[in-house]
Write a protein that binds this DNA or RNA. Sequence first.
RNA 1: GCCGGGAUGGCGGAAUGGUAGACGCGGCGGACUCAAAAUCCGCUGAGUGAAAGCUCGUGGGGGUUCGAGUCCCCCUCCCGGUACCA
Length: 917
Amino acid sequence: MLARSEMASYDFREIENRWQQTWADQGIYRVPNPGDPDFDDAKPKKYFLDMFPYPSGAGLHVGHPLGYIGTDIFSRYHRMNGANVLHPMGFDSFGLPAEQYAVETGIHPRITTEKNIENYTRQLQAFGFSYDWERSFATTDPDYYRWTQWIFLKLFDSWFDTGQQKARPMAELVEELEDGLRDADGVSWRNCAKEDRRAFIDSQRLAYIDEVPVNWCPALGTVLANEEVTAEGRSERGNHPVYRRPLRQWMLRITAYADRLIDELDLVDWPASVRTMQRNWIGRSEGANILFSISGNLHLRVFTTRPDTVYGATYMVVAPEHPILDEIIPEVWPDGTNPEWTLGIDDPRSAVGAYRLAASRKSELERQIEEREKTGVFTGAYATNPLTGDPVPIFVADYVLMGYGTGAIMAVPGQDERDWEFAEAFDLPIIRTVQPPLEFDGDAYTGPGPAINSGFLDGLDVEDAKDRIIRWLEINGHGEGTITYKLRDWLFSRQRYWGEPIPILHGPDGELVPVPEDDLPLRLPDVDDYRPNVSDDENADPTPTLSNADDDWKYVEIDGVRYERELNTMPQWAGSCWYYLRFADPHNEDELVAPEAEEYWMGGNGVDLYIGGVEHAVLHLLYVRFWHKVLNDLGYVSTKEPFGRLYNQGYILADAFQDSRGMYVPAEEVTTDGDRFLFEDDEVTRVYGKMGKSLKNSVNPDDIFEEYGVDTLRLYEMFMGPLDTSRPWSTRDIVGVYRFLQRLWRNFIDEDTGEVLVSEDPSQGDLQVLLHRTIEAVTNDMENLHFNTAVARLFEMNNALVALDKVPADVASVLPRLLGPLAPHISEELWHRMGMAGSVVTASWPTYDAALTAEDMATMIVQVNGKVRDRIEVPITITEDEAVAIALASERVLAHTDGVEPRKVIARLPNVLSLVV
RNA sequence: GCCGGGAUGGCGGAAUGGUAGACGCGGCGGACUCAAAAUCCGCUGAGUGAAAGCUCGUGGGGGUUCGAGUCCCCCUCCCGGUACCA
């Protein structure tokens, strides 16, 4: 019996540990930058990036690295094909969990974060990923967030030139104002007072302060971006109630880029679903603003996508929050007011007041539950339809939202279902202005058709009518064509601790002064208390955690003037908005990225492949694109889009179990007893979902490494199915790939003696053909990220070796290289045991001989009347006449043709011969 | 409701309009073994038949085609996104 160390069986643990150590010692994954001594600019560049993780305390489970394994394989494949591959990893480490932990324990988030990063790094390194760890960083590193703050200052110091559709430095705007090329909202610069000039400039910045209705979450003690609030009106993180209220906050002018964010999606190779989601989120609609006059000099401005239907506007609706309400409500109900319009209240002011109060109390959730039954109240005021001259009553109703368009609509029940419902409920007139088809029997008609009841528009189809009416509105001063967006500006300040401090000083007169670039990074101050000012009271004022900092930090004196620091921090999205740029030049102390490094690594299409979860389809990817475009406009990056190709990996799903109260129980402690599942002797029900902490169904990769090894886990996760689909985890199935690696090992190594079983002779015949076909197939699969089928091909190749005494020389040289990207450790070990030069990591990717992949014989299927009746081996050069002769001689074919001459012959030789009789 | 994406053996999945079910798991049978594990070999969509074979079969219904999992139309269900966006 041999001692363990001398045994020649597949000792994955020893092999994997040894090679990981060796690769690290050699720095084999280090990639030089342009200008470095060992940089080779003859090689093509590739930049493959994973969405970097938030390092949570729970560590990785086997679902997290699915995409990471994919990019690692792709990176290794391209490296073997001679590319300079930038393949980095870092950590998105600002965020709430570390801060909440600090609130509970008093431990500084930095300490928690560092510990978690250490654990994540250990786990990621255990996967054998080929990251260049020298480029790694965390968004919480002051050397990194220094540049996050720097970008913020650029946003602060820029404005959007709508003519040129790009951001420009503020100095250029001031220059144009001074030269009289522009004016400030209609006032010439020379005539502006100092304060007005400052206010104007501040109003033009891409980063600006505004009092806006925000999503205020008292339970988190902070405001949230629209994107962070769920459809149910709760916080995406923690599921707490969120309230709308006006607050002064930092905003980023992402709406200026709305059109470019839509149009430039054409430049990228992204999944159609993600591009659609972004377009929908931006929500561009073309239409018109129309002015309806109200008695006095008042006007009500509405936005509509259907200006062609204005003749059918029989009433109007404003949102409950609409400011015009205070000006238009009369003292008493007009004569003849329909009693159903008044809520039974004696005067309009009280009625509207009551409705507004009720609407403001209604949570988003309640609005959902009420199934959109139309409610509202008459304001007592009338406007005049500019086309018909008819008076139209103005209502308040919560089906019109203040946050979209102008917060007011002209209601055209004939062509709008919501308006139809409201009109029916309030007994309002309905006029069709588009002729529905004869067979139409619905209510509101929204389809195409000729205009009717519409004066000079009659007979025109919808598009022509829109054009005509917009022209009329513009000529007569009743409105204009316009475009609105669902996208709002990005609410950028948070009242939390664990984020980048916003580097702005507030002067005594409200002036905003940027912290000088040389003073960056503006470090987070220490505080005694990390608790946000959390409250159940939705009206409580937000108190930034940084207000707990010492006065030394909070106040700055410059030239005898006392400034107060901005106490808000940036949202977690900030750090991930530009990290891909920093990886190109992570240690640069003078610039966020050197132009040579940026142009080389981001050249062409930016990041060549960006893999991550589809949950970032809107939030992260929209914000990144916005920042990137600003940096591009200002000349700091060379491409319009950051990510040329995006790919969404699927998720790993797993069984989860709920007890009788619906609580999840740890899946790994659930036992089965025939048909039932038991947890601590109680029956639990099986459900199914995304692997993770919330379902308590995580599988720890450390456990899999222990039992089967890294290569097995990597291979298994790829073999389960296509990278972009979700798949159920099945620990039982892992053994299949494990057996493959064992079999591979035994094909190459004699388990008793350790002898390398490789022949000096190359393969011949069928085996040689198989080898070259395998190279061809695996190469294609690698290019297309079809790693599941690549693994299957390697299984087949390996199975063909089992019966041989020795592996033919050419197969032995090729197989570890084909497997190398997928299972690098065993491949490297076999490579070295065979005495091959260098490392399989840097070996060249094998090529195939096309002459060998094409066979000289083929299996021809013979169909009679569309059904396969025989399969005949034929030379690939067979002619149609020969094929028909051979087919008609076949007994199996004869049995179905009854000897009749075929009426028709379709030949796709040498594979198909289809006979019709 | 609207917009995406799906549905293939017991399970995960594979199939440029051309042999449906590659590869793996599981299952069944065999070899080896005192035995077990491991390993190796064979079988494994359903029905029918002694067999050759025949029939059916890719969610359901129709269509195009010599030929459809694949293309077209309608429907069902599942997953994701979104939702009074004027």
